[in-house]
Write a protein that binds this DNA or RNA. Structure first.
Length: 645
RNA sequence: GCCACCCUAGCUCAGCAGGUAGAGCAACGCAUUCGUAAUGCGUCGGUCAUCGGUUCGAGUCCGAUGGGUGGCUCCA
C-alpha cells in the first residue's frame, strides 16, 4: 500500500468542518476496497507504473464485471465503475421486482457473475477504443439513462457536474471488449486475457446513490478486488484478515476495555471499562503534563449552553443538523454542546485582555455530542459522544507564525510519544466561499505553509479545501498496518473573533482583533483509543498496559514468595497481579498471554530458593532468571522509553 | 436514513429437509500442585432479539419491529 495517502477531501462529507477537529474521520481500514484512489495518486504519480498497471487492471475487471452483470440482468442500467484502492466497483440499477420492490443482487448472483467473468477473461477479448461525437454517444446509449447523463456532462464542455474541469477528457470515447461497450476514458489492459482469473474476487454489495446524492436513484453496487496474480490477492485477503484480528471492537471485548449498549444507553455512546479507563487515564495524564509544560491553561466548561450562544457562534446556522434538540428550562432553550469553542471564547472575553498576556492557550478535555446517522456509527471511531483534547489559541497577529510552529511540533511530539512514527501533513487553503479578508488569508496560509516547511516533513496542499472560516493543517498518522488515520487538526478561525467581537489592547493602547486557532491533537479520546488498540493489536506499550506484570507461581509452595514480589513491584510503581489460582502453570501463562500482559514472572522452587524471577514476555521470548531488582529496572526502563516491551 | 447479510447460554459457534435446544470456552464446585500457550470430573446457565402469521407442530418458513455487520460524494 505504499504511496497511498488518504484523501482529505473526504472530510467534506463529514459535515464537521465548522470549527471541528476531525474526530469523525473514519479510519481508512483496508477492510473493503472502498477507499478512493487519492488525489495525490491521481495527480502526482501519473508516471507511477504500479499505479498505472493497477488502474488499468481494475478498471478492466470492472468492465468485465459489468458485462457479466448485463448477461445475467439484461434489463440492468449501468452507472459508473471506477477502479479504487485495492479494487474496483460498479453501480447498477436493476429495476424493480414484480412486487415493486427494488431488485438487488444476491450472494448467488455474485458467484454466478464471478464464474461468467472467468469465461470472458478466457476469451482474451481485446479492449478497443473509439472516439465518438456526443450525438453518436447518445444514440449508442439511448437506453442507458445514467450514461446519457454523463454524456450530457461531457458534451457541456469537458466539465463534470461540479463545474470542475475533467482532466484530458474533452473527447468522448468508448471502450469495447467482446460484446460489451462502455463510455470510458480508459486506459485498459490490451485484452481480457491479461486479467488473472484467480486474482480477483467480488467482495460484497452495497446500496449507493447515483452521484452520491441521496435524493437520486438508489443503485446496487458490487465491490471487487483485483490483483496482478493469485499471490497478491492472497496477500491482500491476508491483510484484510489481519485487520479483522486487530479490530478494536473485537479486542475491546476480548480485553474488556469498553462496550456500548444500544438498547439501554444508545448508539455511539461509549462505556469505558476499568482497563480501558486506565489506559485513557494514562494517555490523558501524559498529554496533560505536556500541555502544562507547553504553556496551556486548563479550563472546564459546561455541557449545555443557551441558544443565544449558538446563534452568536453560528452553530445554529451552519451546524444545527448535527446538534441535539434543545432542552427547555424556565422558558429558555439550552443546547448540548457540539464543540467547546464558544465557551472558551467567553473565557477570553470575561475581561479586558492585554497584548502582554498573549498568547492565551485554553485547553479542555471537552466532551461534546453530535448527531451521527445510525448507520454511520462504528465502534470507537464514529460515535455520538466523545471527548476532544481541545484547545483554542488566542494570539496577536505577529505571534501567529511562532504559535503555528509550536503547535505543530507539539502535536508531532505528542503523537511520537504514543508510538507513531509516520506522519503526513495536509494544508488546506482558501475555498471559494469564505469569510475574512484576503490579507488575513494570505497571512494565515503563509504562516501555515512556512510552518510546514520548517517542520521538514513532507506535506501536501489541498487548494480550496480549507473551511470557510480559515485554512488548516491536518496531520495523518500511519498505523502498524500502514493505514492512514486523520488525527490532529490545526485550524485558523477568522469567524468567531468577529462574531464575538474579541479584542485585546495593544502596546499602542488601541483595541485589536486577536487571531484564533482551534486545535485538537489526539482528536477524540474515543477515536484515539480505537487507533491505539488497532495500532498495537492490543499489545500496548508497557506504560499504557493496564496490567503490566502477572506473577505466576508454579505451585502453591511459591504463593507466599509471589506476594512478596507483588509488594516489591507495587512499591516500585508497577501494575501487577498474582495468579494464585489452582490452574497449571501452562494455563496461567496462556491466560496472561491472551490478556496481552507484557511481563510474566514465573516462579518455581528454584526461583523461590534463589529469590529471583523468571521473566517471560507476551511475545513468547524468555529473558531468563534475574533478581527482582533487576526486573524492576528493566520494566522501569521500558515504561520510561514507552517501548512496546 | 438507504441496500445486503446477520441476531441461538456471559463469549465463540453447531443445530443441514419444520417434530419442541447442543458443543467448546467462561463461571461455580471437587480433585490435582504441576517448569514456559489449555489438568480432570462435575454443576449452573437459553421464553433460540421482539411481535405477529403459516402449520397438528416454528430456532428452522413468511412479515413487521429492534439491534448488529459490511457498504453508501472514488466520476464515463
Amino acid at each position: 500500500m505504499g504511496g497511498t495517502t488518504p484523501n482529505p477531501a473526504s472530510q467534506r462529507t463529514e459535515g464537521f468542518l465548522f470549527f471541528c477537529p476531525p474526530f469523525a474521520h473514519k479510519p481508512t481500514i483496508p477492510n473493503g476496497p472502498s477507499e478512493r484512489l487519492s488525489e495525490v495518486m491521481m495527480s502526482d504519480n501519473k508516471q507511477n507504473d504500479q499505479y498505472d498497471n493497477d488502474y488499468r487492471l481494475r478498471h478492466s475487471v470492472a468492465h468485465v464485471m459489468a458485462q457479466a452483470v448485463l448477461d445475467r440482468f439484461p434489463e440492468a442500467k449501468i452507472a459508473i465503475g471506477p477502479p479504487i484502492k485495492d479494487g474496483f466497483y460498479y453501480d447498477f440499477d436493476l429495476g424493480t421486482n414484480e412486487d415493486g420492490s427494488v431488485r438487488t443482487f444476491t450472494p448467488a448472483d455474485l458467484t454466478a457473475i464471478e464464474a461468467r467473468m472467468r469465461q470472458i477473461i478466457a476469451g482474451r477479448y481485446p479492449f478497443e477504443k473509439r472516439v465518438v461525437s456526443a450525438a453518436e454517444a447518445r444514440a449508442e446509449f439511448a437506453d442507458q439513462p445514467y450514461k446519457l447523463e454523463l454524456i450530457d456532462g461531457l458534451a457541456a464542455g469537458g466539465f463534470d457536474e461540479y463545474g470542475e474541469k475533467i482532466a484530458d477528457a474533452a473527447e468522448i470515447s468508448f471502450y469495447k471488449h467482446d460484446g460489451f461497450e462502455d463510455l470510458c476514458r480508459g486506459p485498459h489492459v490490451e485484452h481480457t486475457g491479461k486479467i488473472a482469473p484467480d486474482a480477483f474476487k467480488l467482495l460484497h454489495t452495497a446500496a449507493a446513490y447515483w452521484r452520491g446524492d441521496e435524493n437520486r436513484e438508489t443503485l446496487q453496487r458490487i465491490y471487487g478486488t483485483a490483483w496482478k496474480n493469485k499471490k497478491e490477492l492472497k496477500a491482500y485477503l491476508g491483510r484484510l484478515e489481519a485487520a479483522r484480528q486487530r479490530d478494536h471492537r473485537k479486542l475491546g471485548k476480548e480485553l474488556d476495555l469498553f462496550s456500548t449498549n444500544h438498547e439501554m444507553i444508545g448508539g455511539g455512546l461509549i462505556l469505558w471499562h476499568p482497563k480501558g479507563g486506565l489506559i485513557r487515564h494514562l494517555a490523558e495524564e501524559h498529554a496533560k503534563k505536556m500541555h502544562l509544560a507547553g504553556g496551556y491553561d486548563f479550563v472546564y466548561t459546561p455541557h449545555i449552553g443557551r441558544s443565544v450562544l449558538w446563534e452568536t457562534s453560528g452553530h445554529l446556522d451552519f451546524y444545527k443538523d448535527a446538534m441535539y434538540a434543545p432542552i427547555k428550562i424556565e422558558g429558555q432553550e439550552y443546547y448540548l454542546k457540539p464543540m467547546n469553542c464558544p465557551f472558551h471564547v467567553h473565557i477570553y472575553k470575561s475581561r479586558v485582555r492585554s497584548y502582554r498576556e498573549l498568547p492565551i492557550r485554553l485547553a479542555e478535555w471537552g466532551t461534546v455530542y453530535r448527531f451521527e446517522r445510525s448507520g454511520t456509527l462504528h465502534g470507537l471511531t464514529r460515535v455520538r459522544g466523545f471527548t476532544q483534547d481541545d484547545a483554542h489559541l488566542f494570539c496577536a497577529p505577529e505571534q501567529m507564525p511562532a504559535e503555528i510552529d509550536k503547535v505543530l511540533h507539539f502535536s508531532l511530539d505528542l503523537l511520537r510519544d504514543f508510538g507513531f512514527e509516520k506522519f503526513e501533513l495536509f494544508l488546506s487553503t482558501r475555498p471559494e466561499k469564505r469569510v475574512g479578508d484576503e490579507a488575513l488569508w494570505d497571512a494565515a496560509e503563509n504562516a501555515l505553509l512556512e510552518a510546514l516547511k520548517r517542520s521538514g516533513l513532507s506535506y501536501n496542499i489541498n487548494e480550496g479545501d480549507g473551511a470557510f472560516y480559515g485554512p488548516k493543517i491536518d496531520i495523518y498518522v500511519t498505523d502498524a498496518l500502514e493505514r492512514p488515520w486523520q488525527l490532529s487538526t490545526v485550524q485558523f478561525d477568522f469567524n468567531l473573533p468577529e462574531r464575538f467581537d474579541l479584542t485585546f489592547v495593544g502596546a499602542d493602547g488601541h483595541q485589536h482583533r486577536p487571531y484564533m486557532i482551534h486545535r485538537a491533537l489526539m482528536g477524540s479520546m474515543e477515536r484515539f483509543f480505537g487507533l491505539l488498540i488497532e495500532h498495537y493489536g492490543g499489545n500496548f506499550p508497557v506504560w499504557l498496559s493496564p496490567m503490566q506484570v502477572r506473577v505466576i507461581p508454579i505451585t502453591d509452595e511459591q504463593i507466599d514468595f509471589a506476594y512478596e514480589i507483588e509488594k516489591e513491584l507495587r512499591a516500585a510503581g508497577l501494575r501487577l497481579e498474582v495468579d494464585a489460582s489452582d490452574g497449571r502453570m501452562n494455563a496461567k501463562i496462556r491466560n496472561a498471554q491472551m490478556q496481552k500482559i507484557p511481563y510474566m514472572l514465573i516462579i518455581g522452587a528454584r526461583e523461590a530458593e534463589a529469590q529471583t524471577v523468571n521473566v517471560r514476555l507476551r511475545n513468547g521470548n524468555r529473558l531468563g532468571t534475574m533478581p527482582v531488582s533487576e526486573f524492576i529496572e528493566l520494566a522501569r526502563k521500558a515504561i520510561a522509553d514507552h517501548s512496546v516491551i
